[in-house]
Design a protein around this nucleic acid. Structure first.
Lengths: 217, 217
DNA sequence: ACCTGAACACCGTTCAAGT
DNA sequence: ACCTGAACACCGTTCAAGT
């Protein structure tokens, strides 16, 4: 059995606390138990530390959540410059999506919050450069960038919030949804019911990305 | 001074509690103090009622938030059927946006949560009908619907989260953002800096909507 | 500089008791 | 059927006390 913690600094054998270690533990916590389960106290318990110790490295709960979002954003690989618009944009969009799907329960933190926006300047450069090279006036290039970003955020929000059943094989749920749609009596809804009752997120993502890139090219 | 509340049913002169009255008070609370400020106890205080009384009409805090989202969705006017795709879709998108901007602090509830999806079948019909009439196969019509919806959600999420300053006239913040962008040294970012430093949400919305409708027409 | 514990002002919700 | 209050198991954060 371990001796009870005394006051003051911890024995030197304990791993020192650090912002980095805290953020990694927080992301683990979100992955395992979801966003609502995050609390300073529970996180401290996981790190075997007093709750107030966290405040030496993180500015409070809100800053902690911002920090998790940053960790997620940092996982997006750097864009390789120089390719044409379609290639660059599609690669960035797919990498962004992959990063979010790697941590679906934490993803709303980056999709929902006001990103400091300066943290993500490299991808912005990677997208704007080919747009400008293609002769877009800067104002229109920014519009294009923002339209694609909005689509990305909306698609991913749907994807990470969707019940895991909605996409995959849950025959019972699927049958019930289909029946509900067909019972609506609305003609176009009834016609499209088989496609409304399921959602292949990958296909939706690729479809939307394609028509947006078509529109910009 | 008012006599203290006794146990049991309230005196007959008090407005009876009801799901509807609770949801309206909750929406007011969100509008005034933001989503984080919503608590069952504070809401009960506003209604001059014991916190536990709310549970007779609402299934708990999560159901309360769902209820607020439904109220917001219900504020979208019914689509007028029969017009062509572009007219219908643009009208629906603008009405949806207007409803969210009417309650920007509550909007994330409908943008973020898994809508029961069956509550909003009328707009789905209104969008699918002209797509099918234009000869779209049902599967592609559903793709189109979902792409536009994703764009809408992403745009509105940015809009309701953005600092009010980012769009309007805050010369100091604007100057600082512009300086930061120009200091990045990234050539495309520097070129587009004047447009990256501000965001006219209305213009972004109309631009994205236009290119999506172009792509679908 | 960093860690700790007690304390304060809150939460959501269960449950038994009222009318 | 509906409302109430006490109680339980939690929160985030301030502040003084430790080393």
């Amino acid at each position: 059995m371990t001796a009870p913690r005394r006051r003051g600094r911890p024995p030197k054998d304990a791993d020192p606390l650090s912002r980095d270690r805290i953020l990694r533990a927080a992301l683990d916590l979100v992955d395992e138990e979801g966003l609502d389960a995050v609390s300073m106290r529970k996180l401290a318990r996981r790190l075997d530390v007093d709750p107030m110790s966290l405040y030496n490295h993180v500015d409070g709960k809100d800053a902690l959540l911002d920090g998790i979002a940053e960790v997620l954003l940092a996982a997006i690989p750097a864009p390789s410059p120089g390719a044409d618009l379609r290639t660059t944009m599609a690669a960035l969009a797919r990498d962004f999506r992959a990063a979010m799907l790697g941590h679906p329960r934490a993803a709303p933190l980056v999709l929902t919050r006001q990103l400091a926006s300066l943290t993500a300047l490299a991808p912005v450069e990677a997208v704007l450069a080919p747009l400008l090279a293609a002769g877009y006036p800067p104002e229109r290039a920014v519009h294009g960038l923002r339209a694609v970003l909005a689509f990305l955020i909306g698609t991913l929000m749907r994807e990470v919030n969707a019940a895991p059943t909605f996409s995959g094989a849950d025959p019972e749920g699927h049958r019930r949804r289909l029946a509900d749609l067909e019972a609506s009596g609305l003609p176009a809804v009834v016609t499209a019911a088989p496609y409304l009752a399921v959602c292949d997120h990958e296909a939706e993502f690729e479809f939307g990305l394609r028509i947006l890139l078509d529109a910009l090219a």
